[in-house]
Design a protein around this nucleic acid. Structure first.
Length: 409
RNA sequence: CGGGGUAUAGUAUAAUGGUAGUACGCGCGCUUCGGGAGCGCGUAACCCCGGUUCAAUUCCGGGUACCCCGACCA
Protein backbone atom coordinates (compact mmCIF):
# COMPACT_ATOMS: atom_id res chain seq x y z
CA UNK A 1 0.00 0.00 0.00
CA UNK A 2 1.26 3.42 -0.92
CA UNK A 3 0.93 5.65 2.11
CA UNK A 4 0.35 8.64 -0.14
CA UNK A 5 -2.85 6.92 -1.30
CA UNK A 6 -3.95 5.63 2.11
CA UNK A 7 -7.48 6.79 2.89
CA UNK A 8 -6.58 7.89 6.40
CA UNK A 9 -3.96 10.19 7.83
CA UNK A 10 -2.49 10.35 11.27
CA UNK A 11 -3.21 13.35 13.44
CA UNK A 12 -1.19 15.14 16.06
CA UNK A 13 -4.06 16.22 18.25
CA UNK A 14 -6.01 13.80 20.40
CA UNK A 15 -9.79 13.66 20.16
CA UNK A 16 -10.91 15.37 23.34
CA UNK A 17 -13.99 13.23 23.83
CA UNK A 18 -12.00 10.04 24.11
CA UNK A 19 -9.95 9.38 27.19
CA UNK A 20 -9.28 5.67 26.84
CA UNK A 21 -5.82 4.95 25.52
CA UNK A 22 -6.94 2.42 22.93
CA UNK A 23 -9.49 4.74 21.35
CA UNK A 24 -7.23 7.79 21.46
CA UNK A 25 -4.36 5.96 19.84
CA UNK A 26 -6.39 4.07 17.26
CA UNK A 27 -8.17 7.27 16.21
CA UNK A 28 -4.95 9.28 16.16
CA UNK A 29 -3.25 6.66 14.01
CA UNK A 30 -6.22 6.35 11.66
CA UNK A 31 -7.37 2.80 12.49
CA UNK A 32 -10.89 3.62 13.64
CA UNK A 33 -13.34 6.51 13.64
CA UNK A 34 -16.09 7.13 16.15
CA UNK A 35 -19.59 7.61 14.80
CA UNK A 36 -21.39 7.70 18.16
CA UNK A 37 -20.78 6.50 21.71
CA UNK A 38 -19.61 2.90 21.52
CA UNK A 39 -19.98 2.77 17.73
CA UNK A 40 -16.89 2.80 15.55
CA UNK A 41 -15.95 2.54 11.88
CA UNK A 42 -13.01 0.30 11.10
CA UNK A 43 -10.84 2.17 8.61
CA UNK A 44 -8.41 0.44 6.21
CA UNK A 45 -5.66 -0.03 8.79
CA UNK A 46 -8.06 -1.02 11.53
CA UNK A 47 -9.98 -3.42 9.34
CA UNK A 48 -6.76 -5.17 8.35
CA UNK A 49 -5.89 -5.65 12.01
CA UNK A 50 -9.41 -6.84 12.78
CA UNK A 51 -9.31 -9.28 9.87
CA UNK A 52 -5.95 -10.62 11.01
CA UNK A 53 -7.37 -11.33 14.45
CA UNK A 54 -10.40 -13.00 12.87
CA UNK A 55 -8.16 -15.14 10.65
CA UNK A 56 -6.25 -16.42 13.67
CA UNK A 57 -9.49 -17.21 15.46
CA UNK A 58 -10.83 -19.03 12.40
CA UNK A 59 -7.72 -21.16 12.10
CA UNK A 60 -7.82 -22.20 15.73
CA UNK A 61 -11.56 -22.85 15.68
CA UNK A 62 -11.23 -24.95 12.55
CA UNK A 63 -8.39 -26.86 14.24
CA UNK A 64 -10.76 -28.06 16.95
CA UNK A 65 -13.43 -29.07 14.48
CA UNK A 66 -15.37 -25.84 14.28
CA UNK A 67 -17.50 -25.17 11.21
CA UNK A 68 -18.16 -21.56 10.35
CA UNK A 69 -21.61 -20.23 9.56
CA UNK A 70 -23.19 -16.80 9.58
CA UNK A 71 -26.43 -16.22 11.43
CA UNK A 72 -28.69 -13.18 11.02
CA UNK A 73 -28.26 -10.13 13.22
CA UNK A 74 -31.97 -9.36 12.96
CA UNK A 75 -33.97 -11.83 15.03
CA UNK A 76 -37.71 -12.25 15.67
CA UNK A 77 -39.26 -11.80 19.08
CA UNK A 78 -40.67 -15.31 19.47
CA UNK A 79 -37.30 -17.06 19.77
CA UNK A 80 -36.41 -14.82 22.71
CA UNK A 81 -39.76 -15.45 24.32
CA UNK A 82 -39.16 -19.19 24.09
CA UNK A 83 -36.22 -18.85 26.45
CA UNK A 84 -37.81 -16.13 28.56
CA UNK A 85 -35.21 -13.58 27.58
CA UNK A 86 -37.33 -11.04 25.66
CA UNK A 87 -38.21 -9.29 28.93
CA UNK A 88 -35.28 -10.35 31.09
CA UNK A 89 -32.28 -9.59 28.93
CA UNK A 90 -31.76 -5.88 29.46
CA UNK A 91 -29.19 -5.22 26.76
CA UNK A 92 -31.40 -6.34 23.85
CA UNK A 93 -31.85 -3.69 21.18
CA UNK A 94 -35.50 -4.01 20.22
CA UNK A 95 -37.15 -2.67 17.13
CA UNK A 96 -40.48 -2.80 15.37
CA UNK A 97 -40.81 -3.80 11.75
CA UNK A 98 -43.12 -2.29 9.16
CA UNK A 99 -45.40 -5.26 9.76
CA UNK A 100 -45.66 -4.19 13.44
CA UNK A 101 -43.74 -7.31 14.39
CA UNK A 102 -41.06 -6.96 17.02
CA UNK A 103 -37.43 -7.85 16.47
CA UNK A 104 -34.18 -7.77 18.40
CA UNK A 105 -30.69 -7.18 17.10
CA UNK A 106 -28.64 -10.20 18.04
CA UNK A 107 -26.81 -9.74 21.34
CA UNK A 108 -25.86 -13.42 21.40
CA UNK A 109 -27.13 -16.36 19.35
CA UNK A 110 -28.22 -19.26 21.53
CA UNK A 111 -31.80 -18.55 20.48
CA UNK A 112 -30.86 -18.81 16.80
CA UNK A 113 -28.43 -21.70 16.87
CA UNK A 114 -30.52 -24.02 19.06
CA UNK A 115 -33.53 -24.29 16.77
CA UNK A 116 -31.16 -24.30 13.80
CA UNK A 117 -29.11 -27.21 15.14
CA UNK A 118 -32.34 -29.03 15.97
CA UNK A 119 -33.11 -29.21 12.25
CA UNK A 120 -30.01 -31.29 11.58
CA UNK A 121 -29.28 -33.18 14.80
CA UNK A 122 -31.51 -36.20 15.48
CA UNK A 123 -29.26 -39.03 16.58
CA UNK A 124 -26.24 -39.68 18.77
CA UNK A 125 -24.55 -40.31 15.42
CA UNK A 126 -24.93 -36.61 14.63
CA UNK A 127 -23.05 -35.63 17.80
CA UNK A 128 -20.85 -33.95 18.75
CA UNK A 129 -20.85 -30.98 16.43
CA UNK A 130 -19.20 -27.57 16.74
CA UNK A 131 -20.57 -24.49 14.98
CA UNK A 132 -19.25 -20.95 15.14
CA UNK A 133 -19.61 -17.57 13.57
CA UNK A 134 -17.85 -14.24 13.64
CA UNK A 135 -20.46 -11.56 13.61
CA UNK A 136 -21.44 -8.11 14.73
CA UNK A 137 -23.24 -8.12 18.05
CA UNK A 138 -25.48 -5.38 19.40
CA UNK A 139 -25.91 -4.66 23.07
CA UNK A 140 -27.88 -1.76 24.39
CA UNK A 141 -25.42 -0.85 27.12
CA UNK A 142 -26.56 1.92 29.42
CA UNK A 143 -23.10 3.30 29.17
CA UNK A 144 -20.57 2.55 26.45
CA UNK A 145 -17.03 3.17 27.56
CA UNK A 146 -13.32 2.72 27.05
CA UNK A 147 -13.24 2.80 23.26
CA UNK A 148 -13.28 -0.69 21.77
CA UNK A 149 -13.54 -2.32 25.19
CA UNK A 150 -17.27 -1.85 25.66
CA UNK A 151 -19.17 -0.79 22.60
CA UNK A 152 -22.83 -1.00 21.69
CA UNK A 153 -21.88 -2.67 18.43
CA UNK A 154 -18.89 -4.99 18.42
CA UNK A 155 -17.58 -8.13 16.77
CA UNK A 156 -17.84 -11.50 18.44
CA UNK A 157 -16.77 -15.00 17.62
CA UNK A 158 -19.35 -17.26 19.16
CA UNK A 159 -18.85 -21.01 19.08
CA UNK A 160 -21.58 -23.44 20.15
CA UNK A 161 -20.94 -27.11 20.84
CA UNK A 162 -23.53 -29.88 20.96
CA UNK A 163 -22.97 -33.11 22.87
CA UNK A 164 -24.64 -36.29 23.93
CA UNK A 165 -23.18 -36.25 27.43
CA UNK A 166 -21.68 -34.00 30.09
CA UNK A 167 -18.42 -35.94 29.79
CA UNK A 168 -18.18 -35.20 26.10
CA UNK A 169 -18.86 -31.51 26.74
CA UNK A 170 -16.20 -31.49 29.47
CA UNK A 171 -13.64 -32.90 27.05
CA UNK A 172 -14.38 -30.36 24.36
CA UNK A 173 -14.51 -27.56 26.90
CA UNK A 174 -10.85 -28.30 27.65
CA UNK A 175 -10.02 -28.36 23.95
CA UNK A 176 -11.51 -24.90 23.57
CA UNK A 177 -9.45 -23.64 26.49
CA UNK A 178 -6.29 -24.80 24.75
CA UNK A 179 -7.39 -23.26 21.45
CA UNK A 180 -8.08 -19.97 23.20
CA UNK A 181 -4.61 -19.87 24.69
CA UNK A 182 -3.17 -20.47 21.22
CA UNK A 183 -5.18 -17.52 19.94
CA UNK A 184 -4.00 -15.25 22.76
CA UNK A 185 -0.44 -16.35 22.19
CA UNK A 186 -0.65 -15.37 18.53
CA UNK A 187 -2.21 -12.07 19.58
CA UNK A 188 0.76 -11.33 21.81
CA UNK A 189 -1.33 -11.47 24.98
CA UNK A 190 -0.39 -14.89 26.36
CA UNK A 191 1.80 -13.80 29.25
CA UNK A 192 -0.89 -11.41 30.49
CA UNK A 193 -3.90 -13.66 29.99
CA UNK A 194 -5.28 -15.92 32.71
CA UNK A 195 -7.94 -18.59 32.77
CA UNK A 196 -10.30 -17.16 35.33
CA UNK A 197 -13.05 -18.63 37.45
CA UNK A 198 -16.08 -16.42 37.23
CA UNK A 199 -19.78 -16.32 37.89
CA UNK A 200 -21.96 -18.33 35.57
CA UNK A 201 -24.76 -15.84 35.31
CA UNK A 202 -28.12 -17.29 34.45
CA UNK A 203 -26.80 -20.57 33.07
CA UNK A 204 -24.65 -22.21 35.67
CA UNK A 205 -22.93 -21.55 38.94
CA UNK A 206 -19.54 -20.87 37.40
CA UNK A 207 -18.00 -20.07 34.06
CA UNK A 208 -14.49 -19.51 32.85
CA UNK A 209 -13.25 -16.21 31.56
CA UNK A 210 -10.04 -15.32 29.87
CA UNK A 211 -8.81 -12.17 31.55
CA UNK A 212 -5.94 -10.09 30.20
CA UNK A 213 -4.20 -7.93 32.76
CA UNK A 214 -4.37 -4.22 31.92
CA UNK A 215 -5.18 -1.09 33.84
CA UNK A 216 -7.86 -0.38 31.25
CA UNK A 217 -9.82 -3.45 32.33
CA UNK A 218 -13.20 -3.22 34.02
CA UNK A 219 -12.79 -6.38 36.05
CA UNK A 220 -10.75 -7.09 39.13
CA UNK A 221 -9.19 -10.52 39.44
CA UNK A 222 -7.03 -12.32 41.96
CA UNK A 223 -4.21 -14.17 40.27
CA UNK A 224 -1.75 -16.86 41.24
CA UNK A 225 1.42 -16.60 39.18
CA UNK A 226 2.50 -20.15 40.01
CA UNK A 227 -0.72 -21.78 38.84
CA UNK A 228 -1.46 -19.27 36.07
CA UNK A 229 -5.07 -19.10 37.17
CA UNK A 230 -7.23 -16.28 38.37
CA UNK A 231 -10.49 -15.77 40.18
CA UNK A 232 -12.85 -12.96 39.35
CA UNK A 233 -13.54 -10.74 42.33
CA UNK A 234 -17.26 -11.12 41.60
CA UNK A 235 -17.31 -14.63 43.07
CA UNK A 236 -15.02 -14.24 46.09
CA UNK A 237 -14.37 -11.86 48.92
CA UNK A 238 -10.94 -10.44 49.70
CA UNK A 239 -8.61 -13.39 49.42
CA UNK A 240 -4.88 -13.91 49.46
CA UNK A 241 -4.67 -17.70 49.34
CA UNK A 242 -4.73 -19.53 46.02
CA UNK A 243 -7.38 -22.26 46.15
CA UNK A 244 -5.33 -24.37 43.78
CA UNK A 245 -1.88 -24.44 45.41
CA UNK A 246 -2.73 -23.04 48.82
CA UNK A 247 0.06 -20.49 48.78
CA UNK A 248 -0.73 -17.00 49.97
CA UNK A 249 0.55 -15.41 46.81
CA UNK A 250 -2.69 -14.16 45.42
CA UNK A 251 -2.46 -10.66 44.06
CA UNK A 252 -5.14 -8.32 42.85
CA UNK A 253 -5.06 -6.90 39.32
CA UNK A 254 -7.27 -5.01 36.89
CA UNK A 255 -8.12 -7.06 33.83
CA UNK A 256 -10.28 -7.14 30.74
CA UNK A 257 -12.43 -10.11 29.84
CA UNK A 258 -11.30 -11.09 26.35
CA UNK A 259 -13.08 -14.43 26.25
CA UNK A 260 -15.72 -16.33 28.16
CA UNK A 261 -16.76 -19.97 28.01
CA UNK A 262 -19.87 -21.59 29.47
CA UNK A 263 -21.28 -25.02 29.94
CA UNK A 264 -24.85 -24.35 28.95
CA UNK A 265 -26.07 -27.83 29.71
CA UNK A 266 -29.73 -28.01 28.71
CA UNK A 267 -30.54 -24.33 29.36
CA UNK A 268 -31.35 -23.82 25.67
CA UNK A 269 -32.09 -27.32 24.43
CA UNK A 270 -35.00 -27.71 26.86
CA UNK A 271 -37.06 -24.66 25.83
CA UNK A 272 -36.67 -25.60 22.17
CA UNK A 273 -37.33 -29.28 22.90
CA UNK A 274 -34.03 -30.08 21.24
CA UNK A 275 -33.38 -33.77 21.75
CA UNK A 276 -31.50 -36.64 20.15
CA UNK A 277 -31.98 -40.39 20.16
CA UNK A 278 -29.31 -42.44 21.90
CA UNK A 279 -28.09 -45.95 20.97
CA UNK A 280 -30.93 -47.58 22.89
CA UNK A 281 -33.63 -45.52 21.26
CA UNK A 282 -34.11 -43.15 24.21
CA UNK A 283 -34.79 -39.46 23.68
CA UNK A 284 -32.31 -37.25 25.50
CA UNK A 285 -31.71 -33.51 25.79
CA UNK A 286 -28.75 -32.23 23.80
CA UNK A 287 -25.98 -30.84 26.03
CA UNK A 288 -24.56 -27.51 24.90
CA UNK A 289 -21.55 -25.31 25.47
CA UNK A 290 -20.91 -21.78 24.26
CA UNK A 291 -17.63 -19.96 23.82
CA UNK A 292 -17.26 -16.26 23.14
CA UNK A 293 -14.26 -14.23 22.05
CA UNK A 294 -14.48 -10.65 20.79
CA UNK A 295 -12.06 -9.67 18.01
CA UNK A 296 -12.71 -5.95 18.38
CA UNK A 297 -12.18 -6.10 22.12
CA UNK A 298 -9.00 -8.12 21.57
CA UNK A 299 -7.84 -5.39 19.22
CA UNK A 300 -8.39 -2.75 21.90
CA UNK A 301 -6.73 -4.94 24.49
CA UNK A 302 -3.63 -5.40 22.34
CA UNK A 303 -3.31 -1.63 22.03
CA UNK A 304 -3.67 -1.22 25.78
CA UNK A 305 -1.20 -3.98 26.55
CA UNK A 306 1.39 -3.53 23.80
CA UNK A 307 2.51 0.05 23.27
CA UNK A 308 5.12 2.59 24.25
CA UNK A 309 4.92 6.37 24.44
CA UNK A 310 5.33 6.64 20.67
CA UNK A 311 2.56 4.33 19.60
CA UNK A 312 1.36 0.80 19.09
CA UNK A 313 3.61 -2.27 18.95
CA UNK A 314 1.59 -4.82 16.98
CA UNK A 315 2.52 -8.50 17.14
CA UNK A 316 3.66 -9.75 13.73
CA UNK A 317 0.51 -11.69 12.92
CA UNK A 318 -1.77 -8.83 13.91
CA UNK A 319 -0.04 -5.83 12.34
CA UNK A 320 -1.80 -4.15 9.40
CA UNK A 321 1.44 -4.49 7.45
CA UNK A 322 4.53 -6.50 8.29
CA UNK A 323 6.89 -3.89 6.91
CA UNK A 324 6.76 -0.12 6.91
CA UNK A 325 9.07 1.02 4.11
CA UNK A 326 10.17 4.63 4.41
CA UNK A 327 11.95 6.47 1.66
CA UNK A 328 13.48 9.73 2.80
CA UNK A 329 13.75 10.93 -0.72
CA UNK A 330 11.68 9.60 -3.55
CA UNK A 331 13.88 7.30 -5.57
CA UNK A 332 13.68 4.40 -7.95
CA UNK A 333 15.47 2.07 -5.56
CA UNK A 334 12.72 2.46 -2.97
CA UNK A 335 10.07 1.77 -5.61
CA UNK A 336 11.95 -1.35 -6.63
CA UNK A 337 12.25 -2.65 -3.07
CA UNK A 338 8.54 -2.02 -2.59
CA UNK A 339 7.69 -3.95 -5.74
CA UNK A 340 10.07 -6.79 -4.87
CA UNK A 341 8.61 -7.19 -1.39
CA UNK A 342 5.07 -7.11 -2.77
CA UNK A 343 5.96 -9.81 -5.31
CA UNK A 344 7.15 -11.98 -2.46
CA UNK A 345 3.81 -11.54 -0.72
CA UNK A 346 5.27 -9.47 2.07
CA UNK A 347 2.77 -6.88 3.21
CA UNK A 348 4.29 -3.44 2.95
CA UNK A 349 3.11 0.03 3.78
CA UNK A 350 5.32 2.23 1.62
CA UNK A 351 5.72 5.79 2.85
CA UNK A 352 6.27 7.36 -0.55
CA UNK A 353 5.07 10.81 0.48
CA UNK A 354 7.29 13.37 -1.20
CA UNK A 355 6.69 16.47 0.90
CA UNK A 356 6.73 14.88 4.31
CA UNK A 357 9.70 15.34 6.58
CA UNK A 358 11.78 12.47 7.91
CA UNK A 359 10.71 13.19 11.45
CA UNK A 360 7.05 13.01 10.60
CA UNK A 361 7.53 9.74 8.75
CA UNK A 362 9.32 8.21 11.71
CA UNK A 363 6.68 9.44 14.12
CA UNK A 364 3.92 8.00 11.93
CA UNK A 365 5.71 4.67 11.64
CA UNK A 366 6.09 4.43 15.42
CA UNK A 367 2.46 5.38 15.94
CA UNK A 368 1.08 2.91 13.38
CA UNK A 369 3.32 0.24 14.82
CA UNK A 370 4.25 -2.20 12.04
CA UNK A 371 6.81 -4.75 13.30
CA UNK A 372 9.59 -3.86 10.85
CA UNK A 373 10.72 -0.49 9.54
CA UNK A 374 12.92 -0.21 6.49
CA UNK A 375 14.54 3.13 5.76
CA UNK A 376 16.07 3.95 2.44
CA UNK A 377 17.89 7.24 2.00
CA UNK A 378 20.88 8.71 0.24
CA UNK A 379 22.90 7.77 3.28
CA UNK A 380 21.98 4.09 3.08
CA UNK A 381 22.08 4.03 -0.71
CA UNK A 382 25.71 5.15 -0.58
CA UNK A 383 26.40 1.78 1.02
CA UNK A 384 24.03 0.01 -1.35
CA UNK A 385 21.96 -0.80 1.72
CA UNK A 386 18.83 -0.08 3.67
CA UNK A 387 18.31 0.29 7.38
CA UNK A 388 16.10 -2.26 9.12
CA UNK A 389 14.70 -1.68 12.59
CA UNK A 390 12.20 -3.64 14.64
CA UNK A 391 9.43 -1.63 16.26
CA UNK A 392 10.13 -3.12 19.67
CA UNK A 393 13.89 -2.52 19.56
CA UNK A 394 16.22 0.43 19.25
CA UNK A 395 18.78 -1.42 17.19
CA UNK A 396 19.21 -0.61 13.52
CA UNK A 397 20.81 -2.96 11.05
CA UNK A 398 22.23 -2.15 7.64
CA UNK A 399 21.14 -4.72 5.07
CA UNK A 400 22.37 -4.90 1.48
CA UNK A 401 19.58 -4.12 -0.93
CA UNK A 402 19.82 -7.43 -2.76
CA UNK A 403 19.38 -9.30 0.54
CA UNK A 404 16.30 -7.47 1.72
CA UNK A 405 13.59 -9.70 0.26
CA UNK A 406 15.34 -12.77 1.58
CA UNK A 407 15.38 -11.29 5.07
CA UNK A 408 11.59 -11.38 5.19
CA UNK A 409 11.07 -14.74 3.56
C1' C B 1 -30.54 4.41 35.17
C1' G B 2 -28.37 7.98 39.48
C1' G B 3 -24.42 11.71 39.96
C1' G B 4 -20.84 15.14 37.65
C1' G B 5 -18.72 17.70 33.41
C1' U B 6 -18.38 19.61 28.41
C1' A B 7 -20.39 21.69 23.60
C1' U B 8 -16.49 27.63 19.13
C1' A B 9 -13.15 26.06 11.85
C1' G B 10 -11.50 19.25 9.76
C1' U B 11 -8.73 18.70 14.81
C1' A B 12 -7.09 21.00 19.46
C1' U B 13 -8.12 25.42 21.86
C1' A B 14 -8.78 31.27 23.32
C1' A B 15 -11.63 35.45 24.16
C1' U B 16 -16.14 38.15 24.08
C1' G B 17 -23.53 41.08 25.61
C1' G B 18 -21.90 44.63 19.67
C1' U B 19 -15.29 43.02 14.28
C1' A B 20 -14.65 35.45 17.09
C1' G B 21 -8.14 34.89 17.92
C1' U B 22 -4.17 31.12 17.94
C1' A B 23 -1.92 26.29 16.66
C1' C B 24 -2.13 21.99 13.68
C1' G B 25 -4.45 20.48 9.11
C1' C B 26 -5.73 21.79 4.07
C1' G B 27 -4.39 25.01 -0.75
C1' C B 28 -0.58 28.13 -3.40
C1' G B 29 4.62 30.01 -3.58
C1' C B 30 9.77 30.06 -2.03
C1' U B 31 13.55 27.86 1.02
C1' U B 32 14.40 23.16 3.48
C1' C B 33 15.05 17.55 3.80
C1' G B 34 17.57 11.40 9.23
C1' G B 35 13.01 12.33 14.66
C1' G B 36 6.39 15.66 13.85
C1' A B 37 11.02 22.06 9.13
C1' G B 38 10.91 27.78 8.12
C1' C B 39 8.73 32.18 5.89
C1' G B 40 4.69 34.49 3.16
C1' C B 41 -0.31 34.38 1.25
C1' G B 42 -4.96 31.90 1.47
C1' U B 43 -9.07 28.49 3.41
C1' A B 44 -12.31 27.35 7.37
C1' A B 45 -16.17 27.77 13.27
C1' C B 46 -19.92 29.79 17.86
C1' C B 47 -24.91 22.11 18.72
C1' C B 48 -30.61 22.86 18.40
C1' C B 49 -35.22 25.37 20.18
C1' G B 50 -37.17 29.13 23.19
C1' G B 51 -36.60 33.42 26.72
C1' U B 52 -34.26 38.13 28.52
C1' U B 53 -32.06 42.32 25.67
C1' C B 54 -31.75 47.72 21.09
C1' A B 55 -28.28 43.54 20.35
C1' A B 56 -27.02 36.57 22.60
C1' U B 57 -21.66 32.44 20.56
C1' U B 58 -21.68 34.75 25.52
C1' C B 59 -26.91 35.38 30.39
C1' C B 60 -31.45 32.16 31.58
C1' G B 61 -34.71 27.74 30.50
C1' G B 62 -35.50 23.33 27.74
C1' G B 63 -33.55 19.73 24.37
C1' U B 64 -29.73 16.88 22.05
C1' A B 65 -24.86 14.89 21.81
C1' C B 66 -20.27 13.45 23.88
C1' C B 67 -17.04 12.31 28.18
C1' C B 68 -16.19 10.76 33.38
C1' C B 69 -17.76 8.18 38.29
C1' G B 70 -21.29 4.62 39.95
C1' A B 71 -24.97 0.95 38.94
C1' C B 72 -25.71 -2.51 34.95
C1' C B 73 -23.00 -5.89 31.73
C1' A B 74 -24.10 -14.05 28.29
Amino acid sequence: MLQSKLFTKTTKTLPKDETSFNAQTLIKAGFIDKLAAGIYTFLPLGLKVHNNICDIIREEMDNIGGQEILMPALTPRDIWQATDRWENFDVLFKLIGADKKEYALGATHEEVISPLAKKYIFSYKDLPVYIYQIQTKFRNELRAKAGLMRGREFSMKDLYSFHGSEEDLEKYYKDVQKAYFKIFKRCGLLDKTYLTYAAGGAFSKYSHEFQTLTEAGEDTVYICDDCRIAINQEIIKEQNVCPNCGKDKFRKEKAVEVGNIFKLGTRFSKPFNFQYTDGEGNKKDVIMGCYGLGPSRVMGTIVEALHDDKGIIWPEEIAPFRVHLISLKQNKQADKIYNDLQKSNIEVLYDDREETSAGEKFADADLIGCPYRIIISEKTLAKNSVEVKKRNSDKCELIKIDKIVKLFN
